[in-house]
Design a protein around this nucleic acid. Structure first.
Lengths: 342, 342
DNA sequence: CTGAAAGCGCTTACAG
DNA sequence: CTGAAAGCGCTTACAG
């Protein structure tokens, strides 16, 4: 179908080697030869077959990124940042989403129909340590996010406990005492929300208070509707916190919606802090105070780590020892925690 | 590095052909042979090299999707839907974003470092007809969205004029007469917002009114900040519309933020309608009335079209004649256009 | 039902 | 500075 190196070589009256040299911009090709080859390329409309090149070189130039949901703006933004970071190294990104389901996460880890990728960046939710230990795919893997694993893979995550403590301290400084925590799946040590809940507990204790576990509400998922339902459940139980710290912005935004519907004023009646700093939080009726992780740094660290490993041993088992990177975060104060006017 | 078919064949004491047959689940392999081969595969941990398979078959199993921005929830949701639709056909998705810049869109069209893909789905903003006519890449292409081109490629878009008219009629039915239009790049016939602006004009005329062009505001981009700025500009000019129809939800949400900041009540003072039906619109302080395009259908039509073409002529020039598909849409009425209590 | 061999389009030592 | 040839790992007519 396509035009091959051989066709170009034939037309230019040189060997394929020479054409290859021209295509790959190798030095040491006579100007005149180069011109002749280039002309043949143009006339024939030759385009190199990357698949063949990949087969030969053992690399594809493709990185995969798997996140729970693209519909969560945090992950959509992260994906954009990863695509940009990858482009800087001439890599292209294959995107997948797992819905946060263990089976799908395992599939992705195992290189499911993806022997085509050079490396993988995964943001897991339900994946277990054993799934990772049983991994047979040889492409380098970088883990993202709050989950903790004892496995020999690079791991990139902000300090979730410290970030949560910062958020809770802000709420305490404002005079709040009954601070609710809204989040999903924090039962076990290893689960996603665990570290943020721990930050909530630690900071409340550090203030000399006793964490009120009845103010901890488990959401079903990580979306706006989950936050709205959790807030409603809390209020229905007759609890009336003076502040809410949510696992993420989406849950916080859902909670704010419920507060408004119930006639409670965000900030004045109930202060709210989220986590992620998605742009949406800045544009609601009341803008949202939140923890802003450095997404650019996360994307860059993930991609750079992969690229480095790839340069060292193309698709081999972890050569260098696994790294844990800690990108930064900051608290962004907005209207949802405006100081109450007494 | 990896284990090849040959290694497995050697171990199982059969030819590579037989191993290939087993791997590909071809019938006509003795149960005993199959078992022996399978055992060798397991022992060696053999994983087929997809790149080699691709080279041989001339197909990669990868579809590319290029959207303007992943940070726009509409496109993030669309990307998710495309990934799911592709998975149903055993295709995987390479994602790229163009920032709506012509140069980047051309690059994507030309198969920029992407001879690895079987087909391309592109949602263009600035791309011109000539860019498309000059396309040399042979991978089938499906165009998405409002832009109109006279080119031999599949095009999938809802009826933007009809959708806009529906939105404006809703506003008129509510008794609004001064309806502003907020959108980007609608100057030329071919530009993205042109059809939606046309719908605004047509419906106002159909109501026996004269479209007031001073209520048409060009935004810089398609985001929340652009909508907020456009609304502010309009109010600063002393105009006080009784309704706003925005090119998309993000612009509408930004406009709503400005209205609130200026002490105007959304719905009671100024009704607002957006376009896209992103989830965020349902959770603001005031939920947003919007046009909801059938994203699932759009994704399905795009992927199915590509897959069909691929089945026919793997990466050849458009064999079948180009199709224009028209997925549906509906108006979703929410609080931002609640009937005014007189 | 299975084997030997060619070839997908490229890169890369190895010669000259 | 350029050529002839092997080989990346697979699939697929062609035989048997």
């Amino acid at each position: 179908m396509g035009v091959s190196l051989k066709d170009v070589a034939l037309r230019a009256g040189v060997s394929v080697k020479t054409v290859s040299n021209v295509v790959n911009n190798y030095p040491h090709v006579t100007t005149v030869t180069r011109a002749r080859v280039q002309q043949a390329i143009d006339e024939l409309g030759y385009r190199p077959n990357l698949t063949a090149r990949h087969l030969r070189k053992g690399r594809t130039g493709i990185l995969a990124l798997a996140v729970p949901e693209l519909s969560n703006p945090y992950f959509a933004d992260l994906a954009g940042a990863v695509i940009d970071a990858a482009a800087r190294h001439d890599y292209t990104v294959l995107l997948d989403h797992t819905a946060g389901e263990r089976a799908k996460e395992i599939l992705v880890c195992q290189g499911f129909r993806s022997h085509v990728i050079d490396g993988l960046i995964l943001s897991p939710i339900e994946l277990e340590t054993e799934d990772l230990l049983g991994r047979t795919d040889t492409a380098p893997l970088v883990l993202l996010g709050e989950r903790q694993y004892d496995v020999p893979y690079d791991h990139i995550a902000i300090d979730n406990v410290a970030a949560s403590r910062t958020a809770v301290r802000h709420l305490l400084d404002l005079g709040n005492r009954r601070i609710a925590f809204l989040g999903a799946r924090f039962e076990s040590e290893r689960q996603p929300a665990h570290l943020r809940l721990r930050g909530w507990r630690e900071e409340i204790r550090a203030a000399g208070l006793v964490p009120d576990e009845s103010l901890v509400i488990a959401t079903d998922g990580y979306g706006r509707t989950d936050g709205a339902a959790a807030m409603a459940a809390l209020l229905d139980r007759g609890e009336r916190p003076d502040a809410v710290f949510a696992y993420n912005d989406l849950i916080a935004l859902g909670a704010m919606r419920t507060l408004t519907e119930r006639g409670l004023r965000v900030a004045q009646d109930v202060a709210v802090v989220g986590f992620d700093d998605i742009e949406e939080g800045r544009f609601g009726g009341v803008s949202l105070t939140t923890i802003s992780p450095d997404k650019q740094a996360i994307a860059r660290l993930a991609v750079d780590g992969l690229v480095q490993r790839l340069a060292r041993s193309p698709s081999g088992p972890p050569a260098a020892e696994p790294r844990r990177a800690r990108p930064g975060f900051r608290l962004v104060v907005r209207e949802s925690t405006a100081r109450r006017t007494p």
